[in-house]
């Protein structure tokens, strides 16, 4: 049985270490925040200039001046700091973020990622994604194993315009987990969702990977 989105997020959360500063992308990665293991203290960063994100507000706590990068209302915590966008991206581009968890349309076997545009369709923009993949120390991708039309998303080469080249360290899909120890190494299949066969993984993955 494939992993649920929440199980995928929980798997990503297990990669986070005590004291990490982490940026979570929009979509499934936002679920990672609810799955941090007990005893692990993580500081979440939002690229619009907030370090130390709290939970969503209660109705009486809503403040239009406190939003996350997805433009959602959010709350602050004891120890939160606010900075300008330039300082926020100094955290990201300067290599100070321990990890970034984000979604992807495609990842290649050499760690390229495409998640910002589909040629011929309206392009919304890369926002902070190119800075995050270039700057955060560890890039963890959460994505479905195949696209809606059944095409593999972990590919030999990305067919879509890249967000970053050779930047992905770990891929968590609904069917499997792949990771590599460094960015010169090939990806290795680490885990398979319960009840999913290795043959299924092989047939639904275009990228080469070690088993």
């Amino acid at each position: 049985m494939p992993w649920t989105r929440n199980e995928m997020a929980a798997r990503a959360a297990r990669e986070l270490r005590d004291g990490y500063y982490v940026n979570l992308g929009i979509g499934i990665p936002t679920l990672v925040g609810n799955n941090i293991p007990p005893g692990i203290d993580i500081t979440l960063q939002s690229e619009n200039g907030m370090l130390g994100l709290g939970p969503y507000p209660r109705a009486d706590e809503v403040d239009p001046d406190i939003i996350n990068a997805g433009k959602e209302t959010i709350t602050e915590l004891a120890g939160t700091s606010y900075v300008s966008s330039a300082d926020s991206f100094a955290m990201i581009r300067g290599g100070h973020m321990d990890a970034s968890v984000l979604g992807a349309m495609e990842v290649s076997e050499r760690g390229d990622i495409a998640n910002w545009m589909i040629p011929g369709k309206m392009v919304k923009g890369m926002g902070g994604a190119m800075d995050l993949v270039a700057g955060a120390r560890r890039i963890i991708v959460l994505m479905d194993h195949v696209s809606r039309d059944g095409a593999p998303k972990f590919r030999k080469a990305c067919t879509l315009p890249l967000t970053g080249s050779n930047v992905v360290d770990m891929i968590i899909t609904d069917l499997a987990v792949f990771s590599r120890p460094d960015r010169n190494a090939p990806f290795r299949l680490e885990e398979i969702a319960p009840g999913i066969s290795i043959e299924t993984i092989r047939s639904q993955t275009e990228a080469r990977f070690e088993e």
């Binding site: 690229e47 991206f89 581009r93 190119m130 800075d131 315009p161 967000t163 080249s165």
Partner: peptide, 28 residues
């Protein structure tokens, strides 16, 4: 890229003509 935009504006305001960054390397 958002960080490049923020830095380009910061640089312009600081009289810095240009800067190098790893953001966007290998992309469009």
């Amino acid at each position: 890229p958002q960080g490049t935009l923020a830095e380009r504006i910061r640089a312009g305001g600081a009289g810095i003509g240009g800067f190098y960054t790893r953001t966007g390397v290998g992309t469009m």
